[in-house]
Amino acid sequence: MTDYNFAYLDEATKRMLRRAILKAVAIPGYQVPFSSREMPMPYGWGTGGVQVTAACLVPEDTLKVIDQGADDTTNAVSIRKFFARVAGVETTEATARASVIQTRHRIPETPLTEGQILVFQVPIPEPLRFLEPRETETRTMHALEDYGLMHVRLYEDIAKHGEIARAYAYPVRVEGRYIMDPSPIPKFDNPKLDNSPALQLFGAGRECRIYALPPYTRVESLDFEDYPFTASKAAGQVCAICGAEDSYLDEVITDDAGGRMFVCSDTDYCATRVAAQAEDAA
C-alpha cells in the first residue's frame, strides 16, 4: 500500500469522529468519548487534534498549525507537513488566512473570525483528573454537576498562596454547566475562549475524548468574587522584536550572565507587526 485515503483516516473512522464532533457541539463543554485510532504520530503529540482536523478538513481549506504559538516549532512543522501530504490542503502561517488552525498550548493573538475552526490538542481532557484520578468518579461529578471539590481546591490555593496558583490549563465553566479543561493554554488566553466567533474543537487522542465550544459560547474562568480571575503574563515587559504590549511573551535567555529578553510567543503576530512597521517606515 502506498497511497492513503483523503485526510489519512478511512471513511468509517471519519464518520465516527464526525458523529462525536456533532454531539460535542450540541453539548458544549461535555467530553464525548470516541474510539481514538492509532495515528502515525505518538499519543501525547497531538493525535486527538490530528483526528479532529482530519475529520473536518476539506480540500479547499487553508491550514495553520502552531505549537507554543509558533509555526516553526518541530511538532507544528511535522503536523503541517502531514496534512499537506495526506489531504493536499494549502498551508499558511497567517492566522487571518487560515480556515482551520490546529494548536498546541496557545490561542493566536489575532482575533479569530466567523467560519474559522480552532482545533486544540489536549493531553488530559478531564479538569477534575488532578483532584480525582478515577474516570468512574469524575464522570459522576460531571453528571451531578458536583463541582464542590474543584472549588475547595481553588480556595485552598488562596488560603495558602493568596491567589489561585494555576498558570495554565486554568479550568473554565461553559454556559454555566460543565467545567472544562481549556487544554494547557496559559491563563492569559482564557478570555479568548469566551464568546469567540470561531468554532473551537478539542481533541484528546490517548484519552479518547472530543469536546467543543460552539461560536458565541459563554466561557468563564473559575474564580471567587473576592478573588477575581486575572489573565496574567510577564509583568511590565514588551516584545523585544515588535514592541507589542498586548501579546503573550516568551522569556529567552540570551547569555550566561543573567541576560534575557521577551518576545511574542505568537510568531505570526510578531512578524505581521514587524512587516507593518517596516511598511510604515518606508
Partner: peptide, 14 residues
C-alpha cells in the same frame, strides 16, 4: 520532551 515553554513561562511568572 516537546516544547512546553509557554506553560513554563506562565509558571515562572506565577
Amino acid at each position: 520532551k516537546l516544547p512546553h515553554y509557554v506553560d513554563f513561562q506562565a509558571e515562572l511568572e506565577l
